[in-house]
Design a protein around this nucleic acid. Structure first.
Length: 958
RNA sequence: GCUCGGAUGGUGGAAUUGGUAGACACGCUGGACUUAAAAUCCAGUGGGCAGUAAUGUCCGUGCGGGUUCAAGUCCCGCUCCGAGUACCA
């Protein structure tokens, strides 16, 4: 039984004299202390060594602490960092905390405790847990996103974004003052910049007479961060904005309160300006293909054309985006999103009632609802008609909720013969479905295949799709009613949160116009509040702060009651989202304590970028896209030297938990052992995996003691063979599933080196894999055998200075080769195997030679650093093993003179034959054919053919 | 629906460019040591058939085809599982 095992190990390790046994608790504590006191892993910003930057995605310090799934990536990156130090690099391997976030705030709402306090406590726990695993972090560079000395620079970057616009001619961000100068001289008619879709055109003269508010409104349509009216899911009862996935069936997931769509003034980031560069940059970085694919999909580039349609009998026109301008002669109706600005304007009196009812109905449905319900076809005719730009035909304009206001122009030209959605809509409302494809049957559905000739289409008849697209775009441009256009699915990112525990904006409002606080006044620190909930009138939590106004004379935060709107103004009440602080932290590590800038130029020029970044794939379209965006912006401003910050990225797979289930008979307070369930109706319940042993037997007494539910504590148990057997299921490791394994327990019972090795041994880094504590004895036993190799004689340390023989050298060097290759391929699981093989072989050889064992210790040191340090010291070295030179592989020790050839007959291996590698094909064939076993296999048959691959295999056919 | 992964013993997983399938471990079985246990060590362990045995032989990498002297690996067609994404015009 596992429990008994554990206790024994524990006792043995504490009563035996040190030096005899592998006494891991003591060794690990000793070296962790040593590393800390000697600042062993402190990286220097000035070094003659080549730099290497190994980064982990920093954790959010949750109250639950770490489970064994969390450190997986950290262990891998730590092995890599330590390996690089052995290889002579100056390694930057920092760690910090993404410490703003919702859970701390929720906790504060429930308990009244300040999030700063709980966050500090959680960080302390994290730090203790991380320290005991023996990571080689340079803690002098620690960052915390919730620390004012850090978020000062998050605020500063926000200001830089505000003061910038994106110039499409230069294809980079520029200072907003340059744009103002252009406006003053020429207006905006010639300006080619990323901006909102509805910017009015104006001349220099007009610009000069605009008032301040008007000017700022226009500028905000160009700024890289800007205030805009954004539709949000507002929950009045919770007083907060909900994300799409927090809404279930139109009501809030939490509490089930109604949710309405509401427009709110929010900060947005103009990430769309960088869409193409974010796409192009993917070619330059070594990131996993699936991750690149999901960013590519998320950005969603599509090529097509904008086409303007005139409305019959109106001055107005509207634009549609289409990827198939070649099908323009197949248009038989238009569809606008119900939210489209023209809808109310063009609807005829006859249709008014129906249209308004439909618009209202769709506004009540959440976006999630609309998206999930794809099958129901709905829409209403507006009564208005558009004019076909080439045929002049009248085309009915409909509205339908299958058209989304947020994509393209919120309007489509419907080509039912070429698009299945248009086809379905046309069928449902009995609209025309003209066929413009040569020899294609459209009675069953649309033809979306592009390899079809166009017909019934005037000047593009008989052309293929590609040719026709070109000609149509030319024609549109000739008539000035459209042009080729690249469209992106990517939306600007909302940057406001109605929360307390986030970065405050360095913004105050003058007559509703946002103003930036001067940079030398930063940071604007979070105010104290009584309550962390929204205010009663629906303002964000910062609305509860009484000292939250900006005095522009004294340049300090003052009490709200002093607001006079002439020199003292209200401050922004929103805070920044979680991804603000994580979008640039990798730069801060380079120069973490710089008080003068977000990161010093010298440090940036030395470290430049991350050489290896390890973290989860769940950040593919969040953090990893936003941070690339900010990096490109900082690059444009000349603030960082590279426009992609991470050269290589690895996604570690999830470690899954093995949940345990007990089965309660329905309607009774009785649990039945798994094997006895039979046909009975049972309700499976999670039990804590700590109460189950390796043979799946439940500790019933423990269960009674630990359960929160009094009824369950009194439950009866139906046993099989005197035991209660639980069911097992592999699931995500989480507290709610009671399948969490705590690394603290593993470190206490087996040691950090065992934990590190075992996490790597579980399987390929990038793959999801189930945790099973029972298997840990394998790697633990390995470390004991390694220890024993150095302590052969009744536990006493001993190495000899004898010359190693060929066998021993061969074992050592094949291990060096394997480990070098494995680390290069991030195949850490297989190096652990090769260590085991090496120790097994050297033990069998009774090898006690320093010339073998000393390099072996260095080899293992990245994986199991504590035991390696201890052995290194016992070998008589002073100082840490961490910068010892990594053993160099020498091929000459692996040169073989013979090969044990597998001999196959018709592809089936029958026997092996040892032959000299000097033999050529003919000689090998001769030797094999002469072997009596060959004759036996052939049984008198004559081989048709003999395949000989020298050094590999012999295959006899016939 | 689309995109991307994956499927190998009882279990986790090995297997460079096609070349001895199951390395290394866990578990299990048997043995040594021990009063006993733990720890440690030794041996065996994909399945079937034949044989007292050494051994021989057939089948085996999700399923069905194919290429090849040789396929876990390459090609074509499926099944199942996982992840992401979702009316994108």
């Amino acid at each position: 039984m596992l429990e008994a095992n554990r206790d024994h190990t524990f006792v043995n390790n504490h009563i035996r004299a040190s030096g005899m046994k592998y006494y891991f608790n003591e060794i690990e504590a000793k070296w962790q202390k040593y590393w800390n006191e000697n600042q062993t892993f402190r990286a220097d910003n000035k070094s003659s060594k080549e730099k290497f930057y190994v980064l982990d995605m920093f954790p959010y310090p949750s109250g639950a602490g770490l489970h064994v799934g969390h450190p997986l990536g950290y262990i891998a990156s730590d092995i890599y960092a330590r390996y690089k130090r052995h290889k002579g690099f100056n390694v930057l391997h920092p760690q910090g905390y993404d410490s703003f976030g919702l859970p701390a705030e929720q906790y504060a709402i429930q308990t009244g405790q300040h999030p700063a306090k709980t966050t500090r406590e959680n960080i302390k726990t994290y730090r203790r847990q991380l320290d005991q695993i023996g990571f080689s972090f340079d803690w002098s560079r620690e960052v915390r996103t919730s620390d004012p000395s850090y978020y000062k620079w998050t605020q500063w970057i926000f200001i830089q974004l505000f003061e910038s616009y994106y110039c499409l001619d230069a294809d980079r961000a520029r200072d907003i003052s340059e744009l103002i100068r252009i406006f003053e001289q020429k207006g905006n008619l010639k300006v080619n910049a990323a901006c909102d879709g509805d910017v009015p055109e104006f001349s220099a003269e007009q610009w000069h007479v605009f008032d301040e508010v008007k000017k700022e409104t226009i500028l905000s349509q160009y700024r890289l961060t800007y205030l805009s009216e954004t539709e949000v899911n507002w929950c009045p009862a919770l007083g907060t904005v909900l994300a799409n996935d927090e809404i279930v069936n139109g009501v809030s997931e939490r509490g089930g309160y109604p949710v309405v769509r509401k427009k709110m003034k929010q900060w947005s980031m103009r990430i769309t300006a960088y869409a193409q560069r974010l796409l192009d940059g993917l070619d330059e970085i070594d990131w996993p293909q699936p991750l690149k694919d999901s960013q590519t999909n998320w950005i969603g580039r599509s090529e097509g054309a904008m086409v303007r349609f005139q409305i019959d009998g109106h001055q107005d026109n509207f634009e549609v985006f289409t990827t198939r301008p070649d099908t323009i002669f197949g248009v038989s109706f238009m569809t606008l999103a119900p939210e489209h600005g023209l809808v109310s304007k063009i609807t005829t009196d006859d249709q008014k009632e129906a249209v308004e009812a439909y618009v209202l109905a769709t506004s009540k449905r959440s976006e999630r609802d609309r998206m999930s319900d794809v099958k129901t076809i709905s829409g209403v005719f507006t009564g208005a008609f558009a004019v076909h730009p080439f045929t002049g035909k009248r085309i009915p304009i409909w509205i339908g909720d299958y058209v989304l206001a947020s994509y393209g122009t919120g309007a489509v030209m419907a080509v039912p013969c070429g698009d299945q959605r248009d086809y379905d809509f046309a069928k449902h409302f009995k609209l025309d479905i003209p066929n413009i494809f040569e020899d294609q049957d459209i009675s069953e559905g649309a033809v979306e295949d592009k390899n079809v000739r166009i017909t019934n289409s005037d000047f593009i008849d008989g052309m293929n799709s590609g040719e026709a697209i070109k000609r149509v775009i030319e024609a549109l441009e000739g008539k000035k009613i459209g042009q080729g256009k690249v469209n992106y699915r990517l939306r600007d990112a909302v940057f406001s949160r109605q929360r307390y525990w986030g970065e405050p904006f360095p913004v105050y409002y003058v007559n509703g116009v946002p103003k930036m606080i001067e940079e030398d006044c930063l940071p604007i620190t979070l105010p104290e509040v009584e309550k962390y909930l929204p205010t009663e009138d629906g303002k964000p939590p910062l609305g509860n702060a009484s000292v939250w106004a900006w005095n522009t004379d004294t340049r300090e935060i003052v009490s709200n009651d002093q607001i006079n709107h002439s020199s003292i103004f209200p401050l922004e009440l929103n805070t920044m989202p979680g991804w603000a602080g994580s979008s640039w932290y990798f730069n801060r590590y380079m120069d973490a304590s710089n008080a003068e800038s977000f990161c010093g130029k010298e440090a940036l020029d030395y470290w430049r970028d991350v050489d290896l970044y390890i973290g989860g794939s769940e950040h593919a379209t969040g953090h990893l896209l936003y941070s690339r965006f900010w990096q490109k912006f900082l690059f444009d401003k000349g603030l960082v030297p590279v426009h992609e910050y991470a050269k290589k990225l690895i996604n570690q797979g999830m470690i899954l938990g093995t949940s345990a289930y007990v089965y309660r008979i329905e309607g009774e307070n009785t649990f039945v052992s798994k094997g006895l369930i039979g046909d009975q109706k049972v309700q499976p319940l999670h039990v804590d995996v700590a109460l189950v042993n390796a043979s799946n037997e439940l500790d019933i007494e423990g269960f009674r003691r630990h359960t929160m539910n009094k009824d369950l504590a009194k439950a009866d148990f139906i046993l099989e063979d005197g035991k209660y057997v639980v069911g097992r299921e592999v699931e995500k490791m989480s507290k709610s599933k009671y399948n969490v394994v705590n690394p603290d327990d593993i470190c206490r019972d087996y040691g950090a080196d065992t934990l590190r090795l075992y996490e790597m041994f579980l399987g390929p880094l990038e793959q999801a894999k189930p945790w099973n504590t029972a298997g840990i004895s394998g790697v633990h036993g390995f470390l004991k055998r390694l220890w024993k190799l150095f302590h052969p004689d009744n536990g006493l340390f001993f190495v000899s200075d004898e010359k190693p023989d060929a066998q021993e050298l061969k074992t050592l060097h094949k291990t060096i080769k394997k480990v070098d290759e494995d680390i290069a391929n991030f195949s850490f699981n297989t190096s652990v195997s090769s260590f085991m093989i090496a120790v097994n072989e050297l033990t069998a050889m009774k090898c006690q030679k320093r010339a073998i064992l000393e390099p072996l210790a260095v080899l293992i040191s990245p994986y199991a650093p504590h035991i390696a340090e201890e052995l290194w010291e016992k070998l008589g070295n002073t100082g840490s093993i961490s910068t010892a030179e990594f053993p160099v592989f020498e091929a000459r020790y692996l040169v073989e003179s013979t090969k044990n050839y597998p001999v196959s007959f018709n592809g089936k291996m029958r026997f092996t034959k040892e032959l000299s590698l000097d033999l050529d094909k003919e000689a090998i064939e001769k030797a094999v054919l002469e072997d009596e076993r060959t004759q036996q296999q052939l049984g008198g048959r004559v081989p048709k053919k003999v395949i000989v691959v020298p050094g590999k295999i012999v295959n006899i056919v016939g």
